[in-house]
Design a protein around this nucleic acid. Structure first.
Length: 293
DNA sequence: TCCATTTGACCTTT
DNA sequence: AAAGGTCAAATGGA
């Protein structure tokens, strides 16, 4: 852990925090404007709040990392990897949090009895399934289809929620380095066309995240959408709730990967073929704002 | 024949 | 030792 004083890197982190807070302010401004718009989209409002929460959580994480004595909200400090058990959807204690490089957690529901969450923009290959202690449903393990051909390290875990079998908890690990449009790629969903306003705002939001990701690592681009074999047959009523990764693992957590996945979720749910919305689950984390429930 | 899924065994971490 | 995560052989479908 590096010190802030007399350290250029620490100053850079503070500058990053300031710039992110400015971006949060801008997002809040967009949210306020959108709330008063006649064609206000609840989906977009939720997307904006998701990003606001992610950015604030991340900034607080920086502060907590460099100023251990600084007061922080319980949601940000206790929502570190070691605090995941506070979330009701994780009823069991995780054994490998210390080494896991979490990128994002998403709660997805697929209506109509789908066997899994909807298309998340990537193709996955299932490589394992495990019964989890204390969980009613097994956890499925997926890795990117292009792992062998392109060495893509991305993996995800999908587990049906205990409380609501229609909900799936998806945890993404690693970043996609593959190009889904290649030989193994699939269809590319069209861009949002039913709500141009929302589309433009999502694009601006996406652009902001891309710039932001430049601070965190080399892979700052938004993942293109592709096909996913998971529950590809039924996407009706899909809901997703991006959950920003807790701030406790900043020293090794790939920040850009988190944002990339969140943006991927944003773009995935904005596909016009899916009737979907972002959803802040009040039980998903005790610090998640609950403005739109 | 190729590719994805299933599933028991093995490995790693706590 | 227990539990989560991954491997790889077996299996089935296109």
């Amino acid at each position: 852990m590096e010190s802030v004083e007399g350290n250029g890197t620490g100053r850079g982190n503070l500058q990053l925090v300031v710039s992110e807070l400015c971006r949060v302010q801008e997002l809040v401004r967009q949210l306020e404007l959108h709330l008063h718009a006649p064609d206000a989209s609840i989906d977009l409002c939720r997307a904006l709040t998701a990003e606001i929460f992610a950015l604030t959580d991340r900034s607080i994480g920086f502060v907590a990392a460099h100023f251990p004595d600084a007061p922080t909200t319980p949601s940000s400090t206790s929502s570190s990897l070691s605090g995941v058990s506070d979330q009701p959807f994780r009823t069991n204690t995780k054994k490998r949090k210390a080494t896991a490089r979490w990128t994002s957690q998403v709660r997805v529901s697929a209506a109509g009895g789908a066997e899994g969450p909807g298309d998340d923009g990537h193709s996955w290959r299932k490589y394992g399934q495990k019964d989890i202690l204390g969980a009613k449903h097994p956890r499925a393990y997926y890795r990117c289809t292009h792992r062998n051909s392109q060495g893509c390290p991305a993996t995800k875990q999908v587990q049906r929620a205990d409380q609501d079998p229609a909900l799936f908890d998806v945890v993404y690990h690693g970043q996609h380095t593959c190009r889904p449009t290649g030989s193994g790629g699939g269809r590319r969903p069209p861009t949002n066309q039913h709500n141009p306003h929302a589309e433009s705002l999502l694009q601006s939001l996406r652009a902001g995240l891309t710039v932001d990701a430049d601070h965190g690592g080399p892979n700052a681009s938004v993942s293109p959408l592709g096909a996913s074999p998971v529950a590809s047959g039924s996407n009706g009523g899909l809901t997703m709730s991006p959950y920003p990764v807790p701030a406790g693992a900043y020293t090794e957590w790939p920040l850009d990967g988190d944002l990339q996945e969140v943006v991927s979720a944003l773009t995935a749910v904005s596909a016009p073929s899916m009737d979907c919305l972002f959803e802040f689950d009040p039980t998903f984390g005790d610090g998640v704002p609950n403005f739109f429930m």
